[in-house]
């Protein structure tokens, strides 16, 4: 049974002139436990909308989404929020670390919504997680005192601290330079693999997408599997000549 499955999912919105804009068209996708999928697409292709659906944030207009054997329509309100907190970890392009809080406090944030051992031992768990991403010595640092790569590593630690089963990385290297992006992606890939969590990377960068085992392109709201080698070859400078 797949961890997450989307079956002929569409998402459309009504525009102010009462016309309908179809953002996602017939998306079908199965995400297995431990899977690593990349989804590339240009701006406006529907990546964010798809992210909302994958992250249990939004509902499809039609089609069916099943997460961990439970249809999305059965997960309503706070039940869905709690499941999202427990099973989905988000990594954002702009890191979105909470200002005024140390790296440790940022990693502790998701554990505030946990219960039992995870809640009461949140400081110890967060510290261990930071240690694992190589920031054991920067726990008391404020986000603005950290480099971009370090900030994204804090964000990775935060996304993984509740042991999610699905990690959604939205342009994880978008705000980083190439070298830092490499390090961060290597770390994310490793940590996801070690934890057995499925990783979905949404990006416009074919190099980042190539790290995944399965590759998709979202174009005009349609999701299609692609050959990453062709995509990379097309992106090389000499191909443009």
């Amino acid at each position: 049974m797949p961890l997450l499955s989307l079956d002929d999912v569409t998402r459309s919105v009504e525009l102010p002139d009462f016309s309908t804009l179809e953002i996602l068209k017939g998306i079908t996708l199965n995400v297995e436990v431990g899977d690593h999928i990349s989804i590339v697409g240009r701006s406006g292709s529907g990546k964010s909308t798809l992210l909302n659906l994958l992250g249990l944030i939004d509902n499809p207009t039609s089609g069916r989404i099943v997460f961990d054997g439970e249809p999305l329509e059965k997960l309503a309100g706070s039940k869905r929020d709690r499941k999202r907190g427990r099973d989905v970890g988000f990594i954002f392009q702009q890191f979105n670390l909470l200002a005024g809080r140390t790296a440790l406090e940022n990693v502790m944030t998701p554990l505030l919504y946990a219960s039992g051992r995870q809640f009461w031992r949140r400081k110890v768990i967060a510290a261990e997680m930071l240690d694992r991403v190589g920031l054991g010595g920067r726990m008391a640092s404020m986000p603005e005192k950290l480099s971009g790569g370090e900030q994204q590593r804090v964000a990775i630690a935060r996304a993984l601290v509740r042991s999610p089963r699905l990690i959604l990385a939205d342009e994880p290297t978008g705000a980083l330079d190439v070298e830092t992006g490499k390090t961060v992606m290597a770390l994310l890939d490793d940590v996801a693999e070690q934890s057995g969590a499925a990783l979905i990377t949404i990006t416009h960068d074919p190099n980042v997408a190539a790290l995944a085992r399965r590759h998709y392109r979202l174009d005009g709201g349609v999701l299609e599997a692609i050959d990453v080698r062709k995509m990379l070859a097309a992106s090389l400078p000499e191909a443009a000549l």
Binding site: S78, R84, G85, F90, N96, T109, P110, Y113
Partner: peptide, 9 residues
Amino acid sequence: VRRAFGATA
């Protein structure tokens, strides 16, 4: 961000 990490409404 808090909502994304599981904070209910």
